[in-house]
């Protein structure tokens, strides 16, 4: 379990990015951490991974302060950052040098994932494209069997087939004891994968709900002009809106619409969940 309590953080003493942030992440979930650029998604992932320390409050990962960077805890954390640089060695060499640090590393799983991503142990890491490097890191990260996986914009740089491959692999690889946190601003890429959804804006968590709860409380449907919706935006085929679900029917969740709606009208949308 990952828990932050009254976590405050700022890159300078005067400007606070997070102020008394409380959040709990439980095993068996794929959390979607959504937010605009600069909202604090990457910083939150870094704090959870122990790469950045909170100014006050705490961030515990499986019961230990993440900032202590204990080997026993780090064995259970694997982070795939948005920007990375890999050494100029072959995949096989990288694996033989890094895998032994992870006690539960599954070489069979890695073999399967590399095949799935059309990579081989002989591939030189520095000669791979950005997307291929990302696939390799994903394969390596999933094979560590770490209980906490943190991915920062994992679909950036992936082509369209690779994005669906990414969703398929994630869904097939994760176990009930693992927590996956995916930070992204490309919400459409991860539809049907992430649950619950956490939306972060200006250092605050402004929305944190499961898919089930969202579709129970809200509907996403075309709306006519003049109809009062919690949020509506104009598309090619008219207006789409978010409405309180008063009829009990379930509509397909439009992640982008929800994100835009929450960012512009979080107060009213959150009130629907309180009722």
């Amino acid at each position: 379990m990952v828990q932050t309590e009254k976590l405050s953080f700022g890159y300078t003493r005067t400007q606070r990015l997070f102020e008394k942030l409380d959040i709990s992440l439980l095993p068996g979930n794929i959390y979607g951490l959504l937010g605009k650029n600069g909202a604090g998604k990457t910083t939150l992932l870094r704090i959870i991974a122990g790469l950045t320390f909170p100014r006050s409050g705490s961030c515990t990962v499986f019961g230990n302060e993440s900032s202590h960077r204990l080997p026993g805890v780090l064995q259970d954390i694997y982070m795939i950052p948005e920007e990375y640089s890999l050494p100029p060695i072959r995949i096989g060499t990288y694996v033989s040098l890094n895998a032994p640090f992870y006690g539960r590393f599954d070489h069979e799983k890695l073999k399967w994932l590399l095949e799935e991503f059309q990579l081989t142990s002989n591939n030189k890491l520095h000669q791979l494209s950005y997307g291929q490097k990302k696939k390799f890191l994903l394969a390596f990260g999933l094979s560590t069997n770490a209980r906490l996986l943190l991915m920062d914009e994992p679909t950036n740089g992936l082509d369209i087939p690779s994005k669906s491959q990414f969703r398929r692999v994630i869904a097939a690889s994760l176990t009930e004891e693992q927590i996956l946190v995916i930070s992204t601003h490309q919400v459409r890429d991860l539809e049907n994968l992430i649950d619950p959804i956490i939306i972060i804006d200006e250092g605050e968590i402004i929305f944190n709900q499961s898919l089930d709860s969202i579709t129970t409380h809200l509907t996403f449907e075309p709306v006519k002009e003049g109809v009062r919706a919690l949020y509506a935006e104009e598309g090619f085929s008219g207006y789409s809106g978010i409405l309180p679900n008063t009829s009990g029917k379930t509509t397909r969740l439009d992640m982008e619409l929800l994100f835009n709606g929450v960012v512009s009208n979080a107060k009213e949308i959150n009130q629907v969940f309180e009722n």
Binding site: A49, L70, L74, I77, P81, E83, F101
Partner: peptide
């Protein structure tokens, strides 16, 4: 190096 530091600092060693 920011692009490499994550792998060094999250490596499970004390």
């Amino acid at each position: 190096q920011i692009q490499k530091s994550y792998s060094f600092l999250t490596l499970p060693v004390s």
